[in-house]
Computed example of a mutant assay.
Amino acid sequence: MAAVLTTLTPNSGPATTFSTVVITGSGFADVGPLTVRFGATATTFTIDSDTQITAISPTGTGTVDVTVTVELNGTSNALPFTYV
């Protein structure tokens, strides 16, 4: 089963510097390799628990979809992140 995203905190951040974003949902732990993407850009992250990931938002513009891909289970639903 693919990971499920419920919230991004915060759901917006600076366009030109990195910021920390907490992703909450389910299906993050003990499922094999994960990739967190802001739009098409993969980013650095830490799996805090099965329900929380702390990610670093890359630089960007506009509004992008944040997704979590589990190698064997597919890609989560998308949540919007807006660069300001």
Score class of each variant (00 low, 15 high):
V31W: 06
D30S: 15
T61I: 12
F28S: 02
T63G: 09
G13H: 04
V31Y: 05
V36W: 03
F81G: 03
S49E: 14
G62P: 08
P10H: 05
V36N: 00
G60I: 04
V68N: 09
A55P: 05
G60F: 10
G62M: 06
T43I: 01
G32S: 02
I23F: 02
L8N: 03
T67A: 10
G27K: 08
I23C: 03
S49N: 13
D65L: 07
S12Q: 14
S26F: 00
E71D: 15
F28A: 01
L34G: 00
Q52L: 05
T20D: 05
T20K: 03
V84F: 15
T6N: 11
A42S: 15
P80K: 10
G74H: 08
L34F: 07
D48T: 14
P14I: 01
V64G: 04
I56T: 15
V22M: 12
A29G: 05
T24W: 07
S12C: 00
V4Q: 13
T7A: 13
T35R: 08
G25E: 07
A3T: 12
V64A: 06
T69N: 10
A15D: 14
T75W: 06
S49V: 07
V66A: 03
S76L: 01
V36S: 01
T59H: 12
S12A: 11
G25H: 07
A15F: 09
G39Y: 09
N77A: 13
P58R: 01
N77R: 11
I53W: 04
T82W: 11
T75I: 01
A3E: 13
A2P: 15
